[in-house]
Write a protein that binds this DNA or RNA. Structure first.
Length: 306
DNA sequence: GTCCAGGTCGCGC
DNA sequence: GCGCGACATGGA
């Protein structure tokens, strides 16, 4: 019943597929998953036609000559339009349009371990739609990582559309599907707690056309203005806005949360607890690349422990 | 049982 | 603008 159509796209070099896929937690949050054995990013995707496909994405090139292969598992015919839509979605997930050369130059100047970044790191994985990233980010606030995964998985299971060849695989729900549900679905069924209202309201605003989240990708919007628009979303505060700015390709702001505070305190303040402003100053030299610098610093710290 | 998490809101000052 | 309590849920 299921057919596989093979597609391939070429990211800008340098590009490290596995580091990019596993750049942060999104890789294991529904409807994404990571195939440990074959090092593939898997994702259930709903196309604009309503067709749901199951994508298996992996590298078929090298860091300097990168290529991404996409195995599209689908039923019926996969139109040319559908194929280009899938390629565009994957290109968005891996930020093909972003240029990291200035950041890499700074890393090169710093020497080790920062120069590791220049081997195609820094492309933090994101979702094909801003809507999905906003909801997932709201689901990371005031909760542990396990709770985030549980809540997003619940949204996908209850409201996401099934892949016909395997009904257990579901895509991230559309704004419309969420808007047409009732509040109790979010609170009582998915158990989103107080976030249920935020997410339901957001879905209604997006579905009605009142709020155009995709418009926030516009590079012409100055970062401070973009931040203001993000903060206007209920459930999005300073931490979530900084996280979303990162997901939108703006790295000026640091996402100050318990992870950030604990890490900076331990690494730079001998366990003493600095003020948030003092903690943020650590990354001031990185200018518009602060978030990436922090993230690599954090990741590098975790890596050394292994 | 108690505390709190990759925080944010609404209020009062 | 800043401080403070409330907030749902489930894991530690």
């Amino acid at each position: 019943m299921a057919i596989v159509t093979k597609l391939s796209i070429t990211p800008p070099a340098p590009f490290d597929f596995e580091f990019s896929a596993y750049s942060h937690g999104w890789v294991v949050v529904a409807p994404n998953s990571w195939d440990e054995e074959f090092h593939k990013l898997q994702r259930v995707e709903r196309l604009s036609s309503g067709k749901v496909v199951f994508l298996e994405i992996n590298s078929s090139g090298s860091v300097t000559k990168p290529k991404i292969s996409i195995d599209v598992n689908h039923t019926g015919k996969l139109s040319v339009k559908a194929q280009s839509e899938i390629k565009a979605a994957v290109a968005l997930m891996f930020r093909f349009e972003e240029d990291f050369s200035e950041f890499y130059t700074m890393c090169e100047k710093r020497g080790k371990p920062w120069n590791r970044m220049t081997a195609g790191l820094g492309r933090m994985l994101r979702s094909p739609t801003v809507f999905e990233d906003v909801i997932k980010t709201i689901c990371t606030t005031n909760i542990q990582w396990g709770g985030t995964k549980r809540m997003v998985e619940g949204l996908v299971d209850v409201l996401g559309q099934s892949y016909p060849a395997d009904r257990n695989l579901r895509a991230f729900p559309t704004p419309k599907a969420m808007a047409e549900a009732v509040l109790e679905t979010f609170t009582d069924t998915v158990r989103l707690g107080y976030r249920g209202d935020y997410i339901y309201t957001l879905a209604q605003r997006v579905a009605s056309g009142e709020l155009d989240l995709e418009a926030l990708r516009d590079e012409a919007i100055p970062t401070p203005e973009l931040k203001k628009e993000l903060l206007a979303i209920k459930g999005v505060g300073n931490y979530a806005a900084a996280t979303l700015l990162m997901l939108l390709g703006r790295y000026d702001e640091l996402a100050v949360d318990t992870v950030f505070r604990t890490f900076v305190s331990n690494k730079y303040f001998a366990g003493e607890r600095p003020s948030d402003d003092e903690a943020k100053e650590i990354y001031t030299p990185w200018g518009k690349w602060k978030y990436l610098a922090y993230w690599f610093d954090l990741w590098q710290g975790l890596d050394e422990e292994l």
